[in-house]
């Protein structure tokens, strides 16, 4: 475990905590895309099929449980909680997210490292994670005025992806036994690029100390 990987995992964890904090304390999910949250829950469910069959480390298992638990509880809050669900921007969150799932599944069936159920599901989760933020970015673009916690949530998610790329480069040079997962690298790079535009406006808003507002 290197510092970039740990920092990446921690920003990922913080993004989830920021989101849960917003939902749990303010009792609002305004500005949060349910579509993106559904995709993330699917990403974790497909990727962590090995959670009870393969043991890597206590850290690994605990983090997987946290990501699975938090993503499904966010879904529960947004769909079932009687106060939170009323703040959901249903009319704005119209991205057809199901149309992302099928192409990712087909791509995983065609391009994978090994044609087994678990391996295809893992690859599917990598492809789907790369595009899962799209409904959220579209929702931000529509609402334009982004509240602090929502802005921080997306910023932390983007930071997590960026740090993972640095982690792969580090591992490539530092670990002799490390094998390059091209599928992960290319998907991860694409995923990080999706945040570039948002990052530009986010950093500017922090620098100028003004509320984050995306251009029309």
């Amino acid at each position: 475990m290197n510092i970039f990987r740990l920092a990446g995992d921690m920003t990922h964890l913080m993004s989830v905590l920021v989101l849960l904090l917003k939902i749990h304390t303010i009792k609002s999910c305004a500005g949060i895309s349910l579509k993106t949250q559904e995709l993330y829950a699917l990403v974790f469910a497909a990727r962590y099929l090995d959670i009870f069959t393969h043991y890597y480390s206590l850290y690994n298992t605990v983090m997987k449980l946290i990501f699975l638990g938090s993503s499904f509880s966010i879904l529960w809050y947004m769909k079932r909680h009687k106060v939170v669900r009323r703040s959901y921007d249903k009319d704005q969150d119209t991205f057809r997210h199901h149309f992302l799932v099928l192409p990712c599944l087909v791509l995983a069936l065609l391009i994978n490292e090994k044609f087994t159920f678990k391996e295809v599901m893992w690859t599917f989760s990598i492809y789907l994670e790369a595009v899962a933020i799209l409904p959220q970015l579209v929702l931000l673009q529509r609402t334009r005025n982004v509240d602090n916690l929502t802005g921080q949530y997306v910023f932390l998610l983007g930071a997590y992806r960026g740090l993972y790329i640095i982690n792969w480069i580090y591992r490539y040079f530092a670990e002799p036994t490390y094998s390059t997962h091209w599928i992960t690298w290319i998907s991860g790079l694409l995923q990080t690029l999706l945040y570039a535009d948002f990052f530009y406006y986010y950093i500017n808003s922090v620098k100028n100390n003004v509320r984050l507002q995306l251009p029309a």
Binding site: N60, K64, E113
Partner: peptide, 10 residues
Amino acid sequence: HDKTKIKDEL
């Protein structure tokens, strides 16, 4: 070694 076995990242 089989690289598909090493899934130590989250």
